[in-house]
Structures are given as C-alpha cells and as structure tokens.
C-alpha cells in the first residue's frame, strides 16, 4: 500500500470522529465543511512527521483537536479558499428530527464546558482509554479520571439548574 492509500484508509477509519469534532467546534454547515477540509489538509501535511511513537489514530485525534482550536482562532478572519472537492464534502444532514433535537441538547450541554473539558469528554465518548486520552490531551491518566468525574458533576449541576 503506498502512502496515499495508507492515508485514505486511516481517514476512512477515523472519519466519524473528524466529522463529530467539526460538528462540535462549529455552528454552521459551511464552517463544518471548512473544518473537515482543514483537518484533512493538516493531517496530510503532517503525515510524514508521524513517528509511530503513538498509534496512528491517537496522532490523528490530536491533530484534529488542535486544528479545531486553530480554526476557532482564525474563524473571524476568513479567507477565500478553493474547496478540495465541494461535491465530496456535500454530505447531508439526513438525521430525523428527534436525532437532531437530541444533538442540539448535546451541543448545549457540551458548549457549557470549557475547551479542555470539551476535548476530554469527546475522546471519552469516542471510547478512548484514559491512557489514550492522556496522550492526546497531554495530561496524566489520573488527571483524566479526575477531570471526567468533575465533568460528570458539572453536567449533573447543569441539569439541576435547568430543572
């Protein structure tokens, strides 16, 4: 398998997370598509620097989260870009209204967390182990545990406040 094929296979394997990150860090479809493009672009650009110290998936998650943060930084300073392929990224929000409604509630909850907690919780939701989360985020595994317990508390408080 050559480099391009390996890359495509790796993207295919992790595309769900790329889409979900893009959905959580943006507020409209255009921005979401831009972020997906940007993540793929940065992954490809850095693909040679992947040193196999961590798993490919861990490395991809880290890059994807970092790109989302940089995108936040420059989101108000948009420049015109040539889309890599408009057609391919023109996927549809084919969810039914209940799922969409649930997603909106999800967004409300997760948007109340700070960016550190948001990153940790997304990785947790994506079934990453404490060790993997620690490696991606750059904190110790025990701190991941502490953080997750606090996040759970925070979420409960939010529900309580709403009621």
């Amino acid at each position: 398998m050559d480099k391009k094929e390996t890359f495509i296979a790796a993207i295919k394997e992790n595309e769900g997370f790329i889409f979900k990150i893009a959905s959580v860090y943006t507020n409209n479809t255009d921005d979401k598509n831009d972020l997906v493009q940007e993540i793929i672009y940065q992954l490809w650009k850095s693909f040679d620097s992947f040193n196999q110290k961590s798993s490919l998936s861990t490395w991809m998650y880290r890059i994807a989260l970092n790109v989302a943060i940089y995108q936040l930084k420059v989101s108000k300073k948009r420049v015109l870009t040539i889309p890599i392929d408009g057609q391919v990224l023109d996927y549809h929000e084919n969810d039914n209204s209940t799922t969409e409604e649930k997603w909106q509630v999800f967004r409300q909850q997760i948007d109340n967390l700070n960016l550190l907690d948001k990153g940790i919780v997304m990785l947790y939701l994506d079934n990453k182990s404490y060790d993997e989360i620690a490696e991606i985020i750059g904190i110790s595994p025990s701190n991941v545990g502490t953080k997750l317990s606090r996040i759970k508390e925070k979420l409960k408080t939010q529900i309580f406040k709403k009621q």
Binding site: S23, V88, N94
Partner: peptide, 15 residues
C-alpha cells in the same frame, strides 16, 4: 447521542 450522531454517508468518500 454521540454514537448516533451524523457520520458521513457510507457511499461518500471523505478523501
């Protein structure tokens, strides 16, 4: 909700 949220459609290739 996270598990059920929107993935890109199967037939479309992201890259």
């Amino acid at each position: 909700t996270w598990d059920n949220s929107n993935n890109p459609p199967e037939q479309q290739q992201l890259i």
